[in-house]
Design a protein around this nucleic acid. Structure first.
Length: 455
RNA sequence: GGCCCUAUCGUCUAUCGGUUAGGACAUUUGCUUUUCAAGCAAAGAAGGCGAGUUCGACUCUCGCUAGGGCUGCCA
């Protein structure tokens, strides 16, 4: 049987980074097995779902390169199917109408909490006239055998078992046209012929309910694989208060390959740290997916990103950066930036390559000398550069500057003001490298301006 | 409270009964050096607790503890 998996985000927010990870693992599993990866939008909650969020989820998935097969499925477009299934179940007496009010249910729940018994609603309408009378909400009639259990073999965690007596007659639809999560998921997964449900650990406790629905429908139960959660620094489920939880929020600082690499290696053991999606497909195994939650470590993401940036095609780098339309440096010169970049937005620190630097003249002062002396030396440097033929290359210029340094007796006094004049910053690559990127003319201009600025 | 899941360096992890408990990120130090990085080299850093099984447990079993998830007419 062909492997078919899916992710089912609800358009009530941006694509969560955890959902992105589970999308990745679904995608990996599908590709490893020559199967299909589908996208289903769970928009049964009409109040909170929006088209904008739906679009942003699609965009995030595309950015990450997790392309889905076939068309996007929307639950809101499946209402006829839910109604049909519900009516059938109703006629078979497997589900029933519950006419209890929210207040009654709430009172019951509080009483149960007070008695310290598991909160659940075992409805007395199920065997009465009321159960077949339309109105109220629809619940599944769950058998109350003290010993009966629902169990499944999780692909990642092994045997998991629940007592059905703890479930109560749980709700599956607000009305014939308003299915609730657990019911809609089962109907759709069955409809789409999903073979493996790969999702977050937070769904483990929904699984027995869903299995019971499969059984009521007389349908084959798919395999389940529950992924560990991504945790914040305090080890609780990653949420807004920990920072950025929207996958698309990482776009400004990270390459999609790096985010995928990070998410992939976070909860699955691979043979090395830096992995392409293709390599991950080869090695993906449920047995190598971890069981325990993993803390989201931005420092590691930064490092992984820096590795990807270093090896990035310069043309693509400039396309992504888009600092000034059309601006770029030669491939070799680009490495001056990419070799020292962790986050994409840090490229702003190299803005002196594409615009005039602005700085305080005090910055020109070398720490082991005073400002006047620094300027004096810079003026000498200007002359040296003026006399130097750039055709002779970087090493040639370095050689003359080094010789001059020996005469001055302080290398820093020569190079520091030179660096500041060119970049306006206290940290940068070698000023000689920068001079050769800027060219002789621009270099002289900046040095001259610096010297003038201080007189 | 109930149910379920989990438990090795600060973080992500390897180990599938016998290892000096390995690697990566981070940290610290050294080299390099005109600054900051990068790069290279090195160092420190771990099996929650208690029983049991065994010649021998990080590894198997049980209990405890801790953390997490769920407990909606949300998904």
């Amino acid at each position: 049987m062909k492997v078919k998996v899916r992710i089912a985000p609800s358009p009530t927010g941006f694509l969560h980074i955890g959902t992105a990870q589970s999308a990745l693992y679904n995608w990996l599993f599908a590709h490893k097995n020559g199967g299909e990866f589908h996208l289903r939008i769970e928009d049964t909650d009409k109040e909170r779902s929006t088209k904008e969020y739906e679009q942003s989820i699609l965009d995030a998935l595309e950015w990450l390169g997790l392309k889905w097969d076939g068309k996007v499925v929307r639950q809101s477009e499946n209402t006829a199917k839910y109604r049909e299934v519900l009516e059938q179940l109703l006629s078979e007496g497997k589900v029933f109408y519950c006419h209890h009010t929210k207040d009654e249910l709430e009172a019951e729940r509080q009483a149960q909490e007070g008695e310290k018994v598991p909160p659940q609603h075992v409805c007395n309408h199920k065997d009465s006239e009321k159960g077949t009378t339309p109105g109220g909400i629809i619940r599944l009639a769950v058998t109350r055998d003290a010993d009966s259990t629902v169990s499944f073999e999780d692909e990642i965690r092994g045997h998991i078992e629940f007592k059905t007596s703890l479930l109560g007659d749980f709700s599956i639809a607000k009305s014939l046209d308003e299915p609730l999560y657990n019911f809609a998921v089962v109907v759709d997964d069955a409809d789409m012929e999903i073979t493996h449900v790969i999702r977050g650990e937070d769904h483990i406790s929904n699984t027995p309910k869903q299995i019971l629905i499969y059984e009521a429908l007389g349908l084959a139960v798919p395999k389940f694989a529950h992924l560990p959660l991504i945790l914040g620094s305090d080890k609780s489920k990653l949420s807004k208060r920990h920072g950025n939880t929207a996958a698309i929020g990482y776009k400004k600082d990270y390459l999609p390959e790096a985010v995928i690499n990070f998410l992939g290696t976070l909860s699955h053991t691979f043979s090395k740290e830096i992995m392409t999606k293709k390599e991950m497909i080869e090695e993906f195994e449920f047995s190598k997916v971890h069981k325990s939650g993993a803390v989201f470590d931005v420092k590691k993401l930064n490092w992984i990103n820096s590795q990807w940036v270093k090896n990035l095609d310069p043309a693509i780098f400039w396309k992504i950066m888009n600092v000034i339309p059309g601006f770029s440096l030669s491939d070799d010169d680009t490495t001056l930036i990419t070799e020292r970049l962790e986050r994409l937005s840090d490229a702003q620190e190299f803005s002196y390559f594409w615009k005039e630097p602005e700085y305080d003249k005090e910055l020109l002062k070398w720490k082991k000398a005073d400002l006047d002396k620094s300027i004096e030396t810079l003026t000498e440097v200007k002359k040296i550069i003026d006399d130097f033929d750039f055709e002779k290359g970087k090493d040639g210029l370095r050689k003359v500057l080094d010789e001059f340094s020996v005469k001055v007796g302080d290398k820093g006094l020569v190079y520091w003001p030179f660096r500041v004049a060119l970049t306006g910053r206290e940290k940068s690559p070698d000023p000689v490298d920068i001079a050769f990127v800027l060219g002789k003319e621009k270099t002289l201009e900046r040095v001259e301006k610096a010297a003038r600025l201080s007189s």
